[in-house]
Design a protein around this nucleic acid. Structure first.
Length: 777
DNA sequence: GTGCACAAACTTTTT
DNA sequence: GTTTGTGCAC
């Protein structure tokens, strides 16, 4: 499909630009001067630097409406990209609301991925694919990589599929095809990685499949190598809008530059202070460089905040000030008063959870001298998901309703993926990855050997696995119980495949038939584990979700990209989520627990990315604080159990960066309380004591000072690793967390053989050993 | 070929 | 503390 008339026709511009231009435009009056400037400057490059809570979505949607109202573009000539489906949905809804009619005619408002799928299906042949290519999920991707590694005869301990997937993703994020991976990356060690990457791409093409990264990568490659195609789209997309520009990776950046390169009508919205996805390839540099990339760019700053109290804004501003290389923004507000940001330290993580639980209880009743809060107005934002556990445990025991946002997504659950694999096979029998997934689920007595036979047969005849299985059965290569079951499966698949065409049968009925007759439903009915009922429930929900689609194919098409599931139960609940998941959300009251060095900022982040990592952590702190509208409570604990092992920690360095004037310290009894004997009446003393004057705090200050000189600190893990390998000598006394004391017998690379006093002789990884003198406590 | 037991590795963050 | 992978017995 290459004619744009066709495109025009089938995308159907249901909104008539001209008809709308006649109507008044109240949407502009709603905007403040900065927003208005960003909206009205339609032509040429515009960078909208929108701080947290400054109404950027409003401005962005107003801009789209303005483009339509002024007749500058028809709905289908606007390319508007977001990162999440949720953001896309929201924008669609808001455009519709502003226009006073549904915005169905905006086919190119969507996520990077969704839009690329659409484009790639049209030009699949240019990437060596057929237009009905499948999109692999992470699971399929890993299985494929594992096979490749094993087939290449490489030690899969040295090349775990997960790691390889990470490396390949990294390259794809930077728009690097195997032949373009720079020598620096491909050096001695990664030589094999590039090799495997190339093989992986070949294999994907054979399977007529792409992974997530490919969606962008293929389109960039096509645009770069097919000038005519690029030019078509450059003409077609007259205006380009990008949300969350600070989160774009190199591939997305190149894609945008290619598309907007000719007319340069590109408007990027973002906030360099909220760039928190560097670890998955996002480049803050993209937004920092915007004016260089698009000379003559108009930069608008949205700085008036409509969300938070002055205290909260002051706290956030003061923290983020510690970062270098910002474009610079200062949030301000008309609002006055409000509570100061509250800071509290606890003895340990459990106490922290207990305190927050009690606090929430009190807030509900309005017994904190403030207005009362509903549970759904309260959120707990954590750095790492394992922190959620303490809160879940606590809230369960006190019966406080909560909801975890994020977690494993609906479509990532095992049973859903299994069911989807069945559907995929019914629709396209050549889907080998789907076949591999379900041949032996439920158990059919087809183990490694039988599966290998199928693989070999299929490869020998150059056919799909299903076909290979059929041939292998014919030739009597698979016998017995397994053979019978396989015969049944192959027959069933063919039968179900024919039922797809059956007009009398809805695709929902078909889905149920497939799940029942394959024995998959029974498999979970017979399962006695506690999660089995939930899984059956999920399967029911999956079938229900089919209702919204014309047929199975249509469903499968969409599902691979729609990974979010908003559980929409109406009950008021406290939200628990990670800081990352909280971006873009806001809550009247926010708790930010776990502000301890090592946890937040995360040690790993600093180890891996040094100062850059620390700055990203700081932005995360900024994002966290700015989620709060009225009340923000930061807390830290002196002790925390990590891996079931107690560790103590210093309060986060970010706590030092909070402005004293805007912080109220709620003195806890205990370590940070007043440094001494808990005397009677500590409750009242606690009310006036001040962490800033406590010995614990001063100690902390002193430590911070020393550390400040050598920031960022040397990687703790690396040091231990290297010392561990280098320093152990045969005969040395060592300590292992689980096995206790022992003596080194032999050293082999990173593995050390130790004769433990009580646990016998074991070979363990050096990292889990410490020299006897180093033993903590 | 399946199921159990034990040991290792693991914990950021995810479109 | 939990999951995942491996080795062993049935």
């Amino acid at each position: 499909m290459s004619s744009f008339d066709e495109m025009d026709a089938f995308e159907g511009a249901s909104l008539s630009a001209r008809a709308m231009a006649a109507r008044p435009s109240p949407y502009l009056d709603d905007l403040n001067p900065a927003q208005r400037a960003a909206v009205e400057r339609l032509d040429g490059p515009v960078l909208m630097l929108a701080g947290a809570g400054t109404g950027k979505t409003k401005a962005l949607t107003a801009r789209i409406v303005h483009l339509l109202m002024t007749g500058k573009a028809r709905p289908n000539e606007i390319l508007a990209v977001t990162f999440t489906n949720k953001a896309a949905r929201e924008m669609k809804a808001r455009v519709g609301r502003m226009l006073g009619q549904p915005a169905e005619g905006m086919p190119w408002l969507g996520t990077f991925h969704a839009i690329c799928v659409k484009l790639l299906r049209r030009h699949a042949e240019l990437a060596g694919l057929k237009s009905n290519f499948t999109i692999l999920d992470t699971d399929d991707q890993l299985r494929l990589l594992k096979q490749l590694v094993q087939a290449a005869g490489i030690d899969d301990k040295r090349w775990p599929a997960r790691m390889l997937a990470g490396i390949i993703d990294g390259w794809k994020n930077r728009a690097l095809t195997p032949d373009r991976v720079p020598a620096a990356d491909a050096g001695a060690y990664n030589r094999k990685g590039v090799d495997l990457y190339a093989q992986y791409q070949t294999r994907l093409r054979e399977l007529n499949a792409v992974d997530f990264g490919d969606l962008l990568l293929h389109m960039v490659t096509i645009f770069q190598t097919h000038q005519d195609v690029l030019e078509q789209y450059q003409r077609w997309f007259r205006y380009v809008l990008v949300d969350e520009y600070q989160d774009t990776n190199v591939a997305q950046y190149m894609w945008l530059r290619l598309l907007a390169g000719a007319h340069r009508n590109i408007c990027c919205v973002g906030d360099d202070d909220q760039s928190i996805y560097g670890w998955r390839g996002a480049e803050v540099g993209n937004i920092l460089r915007f004016e260089k990339d698009f000379p003559g760019a108009h930069v608008v700053r949205l700085e008036q905040n409509y969300r938070s109290t002055p205290h909260i804004l002051a706290a956030a501003s003061n923290v983020i000030r510690g970062n270098e290389g910002r474009l610079g923004k200062e949030l301000w507000t008309d609002a006055e008063g409000g509570e100061k940001v509250r800071l509290i330290g606890h003895w340990d993580g459990e106490e922290e959870a207990r305190w927050i639980g009690e606090e929430i209880d009190a807030m509900q009743g309005g017994t904190r001298g403030m207005r009362s809060f509903h549970l759904d107005e309260i959120a707990i934002l954590v750095r790492a998901s394992h922190q959620m556990r303490a809160f879940e445990d606590r809230f369960l025991t006190i019966g406080l309703p909560y909801r975890v946002i994020g977690g494993p997504r609906f479509y990532e659950r095992m049973e859903i993926r299994d069911a989807m694999a069945y559907f995929r096979l019914v629709v396209s029998p050549a889907d080998d990855l789907a076949f591999e997934r379900i041949v032996n689920t439920p158990k059919r007595g087809l183990g490694d050997k039988a599966q290998q036979t199928i693989q070999i047969t299929a490869r020998a005849h150059g056919v799909s696995l299903v076909e290979g299985a059929r041939l292998a059965l014919e030739q009597g290569l698979i016998k017995g119980k397994g053979g019978a079951a396989l015969g049944q499966l192959v027959g069933d698949l063919a039968r179900w495949g024919r039922m797809v065409e059956d007009a009398d049968l809805s695709h929902m009925e078909l889905a149920e038939i497939v799940l029942d007759e394959s024995g998959y439903t029974a498999h979970w009915q017979n399962d006695k584990t506690p999660e089995a009922p939930g899984r059956l429930e999920n399967l029911k929900e999956l079938v229900k979700a089919l209702e919204g689609f014309e047929n199975l194919q249509g469903f499968l098409e969409h599902v691979s990209l729609i990974m979010d599931n908003e559980s929409q139960d109406a009950e008021r609940k406290v939200s628990i989520m990670t800081l990352h998941a909280a971006k873009g959300l806001e809550f009247p009251a926010v708790f930010l627990p776990g502000w301890e060095d090592g946890l937040f900022p995360s040690q790993r982040s600093m180890d891996e990315s040094g100062l850059k990592g620390l700055e990203e952590e700081r932005r995360l702190a900024y994002v966290g604080i700015t989620r709060a509208e009225e009340l923000c409570t930061i807390s830290f604990a002196a002790n925390r159990r990590v891996f079931g092992q107690w560790q103590n920690a210093m309060p986060s360095r970010f706590i030092d960066e909070l402005p004293e004037d805007h912080v109220e310290v709620l003195t806890p009894p205990g370590l940070y309380g007043g440094g001494g004997m808990p005397a009677p009446g500590i409750e009242s003393r606690a009310a006036e004591a001040n962490v800033y004057n406590s010995p614990g705090w001063k100690r902390l200050q002193a430590r911070q000072g020393q550390r400040g000189m050598s920031q960022p600190r040397e990687s703790r893990n690396t040091v231990i690793d290297m010392e561990a390998v280098a320093s152990f000598t045969i005969g040395e006394r060592v300590f292992h967390q689980k096995f206790g004391y022992g003596a080194v017998i032999e050293i082999e690379g990173d593995k050390v053989e130790v004769a433990f006093d009580k646990a016998g002789t074991k070979k363990v990884v050096a990292r889990f050993l410490s020299a006897k003198d180093d033993v903590p406590f």
